[in-house]
């Protein structure tokens, strides 16, 4: 019973995200609308943390597996990817490493600065 209720709440919020996306069609996916709705509901205690926590953590735990089908779908995109493969791969590797390093570096630097002030 517990999991059914939790899953019902999560799917309802997901659906509400779709409704809001329909009403406010910004270039934001329904999932992000849903995330904001869920955060708002938790913050205002409309939904208690306990009534979504178990199922939510389960869904997050199995999340990596949900990307397998889309990634296997790269097989289908191979034809159009092939002609620009080298520039795409190099740009991807370089920018992913640089973005991760710079973002982490800046955030960490700022956190330590703030701590130093206090």
């Amino acid at each position: 019973m517990k999991f059914m209720k939790e899953f019902a709440i999560i799917l309802s919020i997901t659906f509400l995200g779709e409704v809001v996306k329909y009403l406010i069609p910004l270039p934001i996916p329904a999932s992000i609308y849903g995330l904001v709705l869920m955060l708002g509901a938790l913050k205002t205690k409309v939904i208690k943390l306990e009534s979504v926590k178990n199922t939510g953590k389960f869904l997050i735990e199995i999340m990596p597996m949900m990307f397998i089908p889309a990634a296997v779908g790269l097989l289908e995109a191979w034809g159009i990817l092939k002609p620009i493969l080298i520039p795409v791969i190099i740009s991807t590797i370089v920018s992913t490493i640089v973005v991760m390093a710079v973002t982490g570096g800046v955030t960490q630097f700022m956190i330590r600065q703030e701590k130093g002030k206090k």
Partner: peptide, 8 residues
């Protein structure tokens, strides 16, 4: 739904 749960 999993992305929505990232709010937790």
């Amino acid at each position: 739904p999993a992305t929505v749960c990232l709010a937790i």
